[in-house]
Design a protein around this nucleic acid. Structure first.
Length: 830
DNA sequence: CCGCCAGCTGTTTTT
DNA sequence: CAGCTGGCGG
């Protein structure tokens, strides 16, 4: 790879060093295709080279490409690599996340989408508080309808493309939820805000319902490329279908074996649907792995081979076997962590054949975040620097959200979520009762809280009046300011800085608030106001090609990327926006010229967004780095989920125990266990050189010591690739082995559909051993999912008594909580 | 408005 | 165990 500044040789080495599979994928004809890209098979490289190849050979202009990813990181990576291959203005191209592109689309067509141009985006936190507020206002019983669940309901409706009216109502509970959904929609519309799901859904609907718009984009995007296709949900797939016209070629890249997001609506089935519905003629498997030694790869292959539902794929490598996969059994979670720290110390040392590994090349993976604690303790005690992934990102921190709320109110006074967030923060003597009063007034007159204040002067209290007045003054004062000055003014006049400075614990928060100013600064200069936030020219040739707009074939001698837009001020990017078309906004009549000159969609207005609104959008769409800071050499700690897409020399997969990994909540059905297995597959394939697998006999969880069996996944790995650092045994504390193994079988398991026959010996031993003594023979455990012929599936909440007296408390979703005598009720573990 | 305590709830996560 | 929420009292 050369740097962006190297001249591209005439015989561009774009295709050099690609293997046959990759080359085939890159040079596919302009038809629909599915690339099954295994872990470490050079997927991103294929994707970016494909785009570069299409551009270089004049198959497409930059504006004709649509490339979608899930994360900002992946999108950025794609743009960086692409601009390293070709001197193309990637900024003007439609490369981005689903949500980022939908945002861009909705800004460009805000009138048709029935949104204010400066609509703001609710993140999950905002969405939840909006729902809580709405439920309180409408006296919804929050016992029966927990806000979180309601949020989840709304989100999944949207993911399925369902508006309130379209949801199938089968019972009263759903009816009520749908009512709340409707109220929520009305509220968002009134306040001029959209949640993440809404970005997707509204874009989809606009494309679906507006023929000229849809036809325009279909004509425009000749090549649609989708990354991580296995993670797309129903709506995202439908959105792609809307954008793909008769002349478009859709290239879907994905790996069904790495589908680990079913719980948030991802449908692997989209891959098969895609092949069928698009009559895909080209399917290419990228099976050559460039990452791992074969012991690691063999382990991954053998493990994933235990899944039934697969498209089928086998990774291979030309590298040798490498080190064996090491397996360790610890007596306790703490011992496991201690062993790991020791092992890391060894790895850091030069070992002759292998040079010492740096800490940042070592990763500890676990199934759930709670597991990081012991490991952190061990690392801390050993004074080993480490970094935990996950947790709050920059723009999600409370103090930042507060500052953003003020900024949002400047942009849009109707944003009640933001209003309530800061109306009394810092405290200014506005109590709950006056706010309730205000909310009632607002509800009665159907206006925002902000507007309700002026309608009820005096009545709502002088303090609120003062707050709103202050806000209004601030809005006026900052109207002409630069983004930086606006933020500084807000920090100053809101009293936020002052408030945190007075707090002895507030130093970090003050620092973060100051960092917000920097973030805004670099947003303007580096990000050039943020691609996604601004209604960019929808002109397919983008700003970079203004000299020869007529040229259809790509000129590979395009001018280099524009001078950084922010530096020439907002000018360069903003003044180049196209003039509005006559008859814009109506949506009905598309002018003849615009349909011929496909550069411009029917209602393009060319209006721009204020820098502030753009920055706020940026904050919502890109909540900041969740990554370990670069530079510091620290051991990396993260969940398996967040490790997806990353790679390390040395990987430790910890807590490989039944109930944990695979997680007990996934054990009830086949789909669940297969997803856990894919998760394990993802974990294994993160390792380049060394892989360690560990489990522990005991583990503290929820304040109780649990006795877990080692994960079934150990039995699914090739023995030849493993080295057991501790004696390979049943993974049991010695006292339990016989009693449990012998008694646990037969009646309780009859009807269980488990294959493999080892199920009985695999289940976690009774958690509370001291109280219950040895587990009794019924095989029912706390936390277990059981099936009852009358009540269906439920979860065991508690157990009491022994033998004939034994009773279980089971929570059945449909029928509530029941105490059942085990001698009578037939409970079958599922 | 703040602080305290009781009670609850604990997979995985990006946008 | 531990972190968070909601309710209540000062």
């Amino acid at each position: 790879m050369h740097s962006p500044f190297d001249p591209v040789p005439a015989s561009s080495p774009l295709l050099a060093n690609l293997n046959d599979e990759q080359l085939a994928a890159v040079t596919l004809p302009a038809e629909h295709a599915l690339i099954l890209a295994g872990a470490g098979s050079g997927k991103t490289r294929v994707l970016t080279t494909r785009i570069a190849w299409l551009l270089q050979n004049g198959h497409i202009t930059p504006g004709g490409v649509l490339a979608v990813t899930f994360t900002n990181k992946a999108a950025k990576e794609m743009m960086t690599r692409l601009s390293a291959m070709l001197p193309v203005n990637v900024r003007g191209m439609w490369i981005g996340t689903f949500h980022g592109l939908c945002n861009r689309f909705l800004r460009a067509h805000y009138k048709l989408a029935n949104l204010p141009q400066s609509f703001q985006i609710l993140d999950t936190q905002d969405q939840l508080s909006a729902i809580k507020r709405l439920m309180k206002q409408n006296n919804v019983d929050d016992e029966r309808f927990p806000a979180k669940q309601t949020m989840w309901f709304i989100a999944s409706c949207k993911e399925d493309g369902l508006r309130p009216g379209a949801v199938q109502v089968r019972d009263d509970e759903t009816r009520r939820k749908v009512e709340i959904y409707q109220l929520y929609e009305d509220q968002c519309q009134r306040e001029g805000v959209v949640d993440f799901g809404e970005l997707m859904l509204r874009s989809y609907e606009l494309l679906r319902d507006n023929d000229p718009i849809r036809e325009h984009y279909q004509r425009r995007f000749r090549h649609i490329l989708i990354d991580e296709f296995q993670d797309t949900n129903k709506l995202q797939y439908a959105w792609i279908k809307m954008l793909a016209g008769s002349e478009s070629a859709v290239l879907a890249v994905g790996d069904d074996d790495q589908s680990i997001y079913a719980f948030r609506g991802a449908r692997v089935g989209n891959m098969a649907d895609f092949v069928r519905e698009f009559a895909v003629q080209h399917q290419i498997k990228l099976e050559q792995n460039y990452r791992s030694y074969s012991n690691i790869l063999d382990s991954a292959n053998e493990l994933i081979g235990h899944n039934k539902k697969r498209l089928g794929k086998n990774l291979r490598t030309t590298q040798g076997p490498g080190e064996p996969v090491r397996v360790y059994e610890a007596t306790s979670d703490f011992a496991e962590a201690t062993w790991m720290v020791d092992e890391m110390r060894q790895l850091q040392r030069d070992q002759g054949i292998e040079a010492g590994y740096s800490r940042k090349e070592m990763a500890v993976l676990y199934r759930s975040n709670a597991q990081s604690r012991v490991i952190e303790t061990a690392l801390f005690n050993a004074k080993v620097p480490y970094r935990v992934y996950g947790g709050l990102r920059f723009f999600e921190r409370a103090e930042i959200k507060h500052a953003l709320a003020y900024l949002r109110l400047l942009e849009n006074p109707n944003d009640d979520t933001s209003f309530l967030r800061v109306v009394n923060f810092p405290p200014r003597g506005i109590g709950a009762r006056s706010l309730e009063q205000l909310q009632d007034i607002a509800k009665f007159s159907g206006c925002s809280l902000h507007d309700a204040v002026s309608a009820a002067t005096g009545k709502a209290g002088a303090n609120i009046g003062a707050f709103v007045a202050k806000l209004d003054v601030l809005r006026e004062q900052t109207a002409q300011m630069t983004l930086r000055d606006i933020i500084e003014a807000v920090l100053e006049h809101s009293g936020l800085i002052e408030h945190y400075k007075a707090d002895k614990e507030g130093a970090d928060r003050v620092e973060n608030l100051e960092e917000l100013v920097n973030a805004a600064e670099s947003f303007v200069t580096v990000e050039g106001f943020g691609r996604d936030a601004v209604a960019l020219p929808v002109d397919e040739l983008g700003a970079g090609l203004s000299q020869s707009p007529a040229s259809q074939g790509l000129d590979t001698r395009m001018p280099p990327p524009q001078p950084s837009p922010g530096r020439g001020g907002s000018e360069s990017e903003f003044t180049e926006l196209l003039p509005p078309l006559p008859g814009e906004g109506g949506g009905g009549g598309m002018s003849a010229t615009s349909s011929i000159n496909s550069d411009q969609p029917p209602d393009a207005t060319g209006e721009t967004l204020s820098p502030l609104a753009a920055f706020l959008t940026h904050a919502a769409l890109e909540s900041g780095d969740n990554q370990a800071q670069v530079g510091q050499d620290a051991v990396q700690l993260m969940t398996v989920h967040s490790a997806k897409g990353l790679e390390f020399d040395c990987v430790f997969i910890t807590g490989l125990e039944e109930g944990l990994f695979p997680n007990e909540n996934a054990l009830s059905d086949h789909e669940g266990i297969e997803e856990e297995r894919r998760l394990m597959y993802v974990a294994i394939t993160r390792a380049r050189k060394r892989l360690y697998l560990s489990h522990s006999q005991t583990r503290m969880l929820h304040g109780q010591t649990r006795y877990n069996l080692k994960s079934r996944f150990f039995d699914e790995l090739p023995e030849a690739a493993l080295r057991w650092l501790t004696p390979k045994n049943q993974g049991f504390g010695s006292g339990f082995k016989s009693s449990w193994g012998a008694t646990n079988s037969g009646a309780a398991r009859a009807g269980s559909t488990w294959s493999g026959g080892t199920f009985g010996s695999k289940k976690a031993v009774e958690e509370s051993v001291p109280e219950q003594k040895a587990p009794s023979g019924h095989g029912i455990r706390k936390g277990m999912k059981v099936f009852h012929t009358k009540f269906g599936e439920g979860t065991v909440q508690a157990l009491e008594g022994v033998d004939a007296e034994a009773r279980a408390q089971v929570n059945f979703p449909r029928h509530g909580v029941k105490w059942l005598a085990l001698s009578v009720a037939k409970l079958v573990p599922v």
